[in-house]
Design a binder for these strands. Sequence first.
DNA 1: GTCTATATTCGGATAGAC
DNA 2: GTCTATCCGAATATAGAC
Lengths: 192, 192
Amino acid sequence: MATQDRLIESTQELLWERGYVGTSPKAIQQRAGVGQGSMYHHFTGKPDLAATALRRSAEQMRAIAAADLAAPGTAYDRIAAYLLRDRDVLRGCRIGRMAQDPDVIADPQLRAPVEETFDWLRGRIAELIAEGQAAGELTMGVDPADTAAAVVAVVQGGYVLARAAGRAEPFDQAVRGALGLLAAQRTVDRTA
Amino acid sequence: MATQDRLIESTQELLWERGYVGTSPKAIQQRAGVGQGSMYHHFTGKPDLAATALRRSAEQMRAIAAADLAAPGTAYDRIAAYLLRDRDVLRGCRIGRMAQDPDVIADPQLRAPVEETFDWLRGRIAELIAEGQAAGELTMGVDPADTAAAVVAVVQGGYVLARAAGRAEPFDQAVRGALGLLAAQRTVDRTA
DNA sequence: GTCTATATTCGGATAGAC
DNA sequence: GTCTATCCGAATATAGAC
């Protein structure tokens, strides 16, 4: 793999594990197996490299979520596929984690991929819910945009609860809780 | 105020703003207005001081949440009071934010207050939901513990979405979404 | 108890050889 | 393009004066 790509991948990993503040150029170089000079040849510095890595992570996360949300079945089924996807819960979300970092939030270059990812995700889920309502699959009792935000928040908050607990169970509970509430919005009883 | 207390308060603020990795002893001392020596006289080092500050923040957060959840009215009303409490959304949750920090998660002394706070919060809300079900206010269609985890996750995830967006609206959306789903669990229609 | 040095390592980056 | 050498300040802590 090219030096550039190894640098980007190492940065993606370290940002996920340790966040922006906790990731040093030296650590990136060592993981990538390149010297100091290489990094500063390809990138102007840590913010530049981090922005590149974040954009790539955002693309990847979006592709994965898009695939989940295109699962076969109803709107409910698709959202369930997204919520129930197999995750390494204790690692957390590599995009959502960035929202906690003040240096990321303060830098428009770094925040942009994070913001855009969640904007897109909320929008896509809201779309599904609205389609489900239009098709008569879901009741009209809930607002699509609000409900979509709640669904995404359950995932992001689930990571927080799981990491706080040191185990994945609270994430799974939150997901089951959200699905239980969503299930009540279906117009046909499938619990039988 | 005593020097010790000023150190603890400054640490609470900085942990909230910048996290554990991003908070330096020097910054704590400067904000507290004390010299290097004072801090190391009262505390053995950064981890010791941070643990003390976190325990205090956890107590405070728990007291506030307990008050919300003791609001007058039904179980739904109490959970709504918790969800709708006035928050400085873009600052995030001073306890939840710690869950992202690998150094906090790795240190049992630091993680304990975080874990205990969320364990308690989930348990308290689950209790309320179970009481609401027992009283016939809420349907038996949802699991109390799972639903409670979802409620807490919506708040924690709401902070993530809001910070990612640079504005409070996604938090408010998520809360409205959660309330909309919970409202459907009430046995009496109050939407009229 | 509090302060001012001082020590040591790390973070972030530049300079210049190859 | 990549490497090593080097620089400067910050992070964390210790020593010892007052």
